[in-house]
Design a protein around this nucleic acid. Structure first.
Lengths: 228, 228
DNA sequence: TAGTACAGTGTACGACGTACAGTGTACGAA
DNA sequence: TTCGTACACTGTACGTCGTACACTGTACTA
């Protein structure tokens, strides 16, 4: 039984599940999930550690709720444009949000029960594809493919120490090239040099793969009801 | 400084870094990363907890090493076939391995320094694509796209409670349909019904998306030196 | 035989999640 | 006005965690 139905929303200065979870998200953003302890979180909220358990059954349930809050930050698919624009917007938003909350990505694996925001997104996703003329099975394929790309990309991005072309260039000189001698790793070495020379911008990478996938999905539509 | 260079390989009955890490992987497979404690691992190895620190600098370093052991289980790309077959084999193997060690996926996010097996794979990957006629930038795109798909797929798969068509059918009846009323989630409801009726096999899903991606990458090749 | 190196350990410390037995305040009933 | 009750909130305590540190014993060299 979820604790959200046991406690009111609390508009005054007191605690509430929403307040606890929101602060937990902020804390995790700053310090990672590892740094998020019940005691620490309680202090941040100006409360005793055990007070939190009035709003959250356990640390595990808190993590579930945090993941769902993150899902809720992702822009919901609107169906007032063609499916490709809608999917693109949603994917871009998801990537942005997951970059803000990298801890959420790795939390997904261990949480088996999807929260309400998660389900809402899946419904909107499926709705959009079905309306665009994808069959049930093809819509499922598209769902897996796109979500895999978005989550996988976010996961890889989270473990990268650079964001911009400049940062990459700096890392290339100071770390990659010294660690990737041309005789042992000729291709990685060549790549590191080539990318730096070409002014490769890692910020554009996501969009490239996304467009490729969207284009590849296009032929899977069986009718073209709405969304061409 | 890595502990691997400080301690010998130990062929006799004693401990060794390899032995410690291997047992840690086994333990994590059984109980998850959360269940993997230094004391528990030591007991499993018939040693005192503090003995482990002769082979591993910290729990964190142990986790790094475990992730790299998992990478090492993935089949290394061979370049004796066309690039698509090679990529397919590698991706299939990666997905299999990650399904065996789901904890490794979420660990990737927090580990910023890739281990030797990881680098070896990236080198082989890049080599294969370059030899197949991809430019440096296009090979990078392909690398991101494919890896994102594989990791993202594994991540999603890890949080699913079913593996086969039968298990899905059972879950559909007992969990999904009751929780997805047709009036609130019409499209998810329709999907659940439709997939069960069509005998949809989740085990085939990975290959579908993979083929789509491989086909989409084909036109990015600038020459067709080796690998058509 | 003494010295030394080093694999392996026991104890202890601070931090963790959380069970449990409280406390205080607010408010309706008398 | 007084009492009863409900409930938001908390302090203490327990078992477990990672690991610093000082220690053991054994094996091998001088």
């Amino acid at each position: 039984m979820s604790a959200s139905e046991q406690r009111p929303a609390a508009t005054d200065g007191g605690l509430s599940k929403a307040r606890v979870v929101a602060e937990a998200v902020r804390l995790a953003d700053r310090e990672g999930v590892h740094g998020l302890s019940m005691r620490r979180l309680a202090t941040e909220l100006g409360a005793g550690a055990m007070s939190l358990y009035h709003y959250v059954a356990s640390r595990d349930e808190l993590l579930d709720a945090m993941v769902d809050v993150v899902f809720d930050e992702i822009e919901l698919l609107s169906d007032d444009t063609d499916w490709r624009s809608a999917m693109r917007r949603q994917a871009m938003s998801a990537r942005q949000v997951l970059a803000r909350h990298p801890w959420a990505i790795s939390l997904m694996e261990s949480r088996t029960t999807p929260g309400p925001a998660n389900v809402r997104h899946r419904e909107a996703f499926t709705a959009c594809l079905r309306k665009a003329g994808f069959s049930i099975v093809m819509a499922t394929h598209a769902n897996w493919l796109l979500n895999s790309y978005v989550y996988g990309y976010a996961l890889q991005e989270a473990s990268l120490p650079f964001r911009t072309a400049d940062e990459l260039a700096e890392m290339t000189d100071s770390v990659y090239l010294p660690q990737l001698p041309a005789d042992e790793f000729p291709y990685l070495h060549e790549s590191a040099v080539g990318l730096a020379q070409a002014g490769y911008d890692p910020g554009e990478e996501f969009a490239f793969g996304l467009e490729l996938i969207l284009a590849a999905l296009e032929p899977l539509r069986t009718s073209d009801a709405r969304g061409a």
